[in-house]
Design a protein around this nucleic acid. Sequence first.
DNA 1: ACCAAAAGCCGCCAAC
DNA 2: AAGTTGGCGGCTTTTG
Length: 315
Amino acid sequence: VRNVVLVGFQGAQLLDMAGPADVFSMASQMGAQPAFKVQIVSSAGGLLETSSGVAINTLAVSEVDSQKIDTLIVAGGARDGLVAAIEDEVLAGWVRSAAPKARRFGSVCSGAFALAQWGLLDGCRATTHWSATSTLRRYYVNTQVEPEALFVRDGRVWTSGGVTAGIDMCLAMVEEDQGRELTARVARQLLLSVRRLGNQSQYSRTLQLQAGRYAELIDWIRTHLTETLSIERLAEHAGQSNRSFQRHFEAQTGETPAAFVESQRLNAAREQLEAGASLKAAARTAGLTSDEQLARVFKRRLGMSPLQYQMVHCG
DNA sequence: ACCAAAAGCCGCCAAC
DNA sequence: AAGTTGGCGGCTTTTG
């Protein structure tokens, strides 16, 4: 049985701990025999008030044998609580000594700042909540921040983006330990209809934009992927000049118009490939001009060719 | 794998 | 006075 230890603090985000806890315990229940034991720890132990006000019970770090930890994950949370946790000598000292001895360790969301400050991310590739990636990069120059990733694995160091990405990360851990089949069942049990890969973008434009000013335009883009979607065309559709459109669209969506269109086309192509379409057909319905174009976009955005993607994802 | 042409991006700034 | 607009041009990225 592998010991999974989740590290929390006053003001930590409940889901950052609850998500991983449920993934590992669910995997344990559904497997042939219990594979994981989950413990939630904090500096002093006892009740922890999370950022949402829901309190959870924790063990004190002193009660946990740091020699026997398999997986150690630090939660993220509200700024003040996180800063206090980082400066907490007891917690810092314990994690610093425990993490290197664990088989793997990591963080969810802003927990990456704690790991980084404690020197545990030096020389590593890592990520954090999308709104904080530039800050992480600025303060911790020895860490290669990957802002687009849902989660990043660099050897034994795993870091994930905003809250629910932690669930995807833990599923990937379970998959490594227990295989794909069990992991798929766990994901299904948790009603995660789509498992997301680490290199997927952190937030859903669909959700983010529903209320936005360009919701209608975005809907139009999605339904007209095969047409020419140049800036001119989109600006015209939005009733703005090119320059203003570009400015506002980027402010609203966090992506430039061309990048956004490319994302949409990539997603469409992915769905096609996953549905078993040929490369040419996938390219065509996604509005990419050729299968070479398709390959370029895959390489650029996913770091792999369409064929490799099929191997990994449709295999 | 390469390259010229095209497209996209974005700081700048005068004009609202 | 402060904020927005949109044309220009140079620089980078993408395309065929």
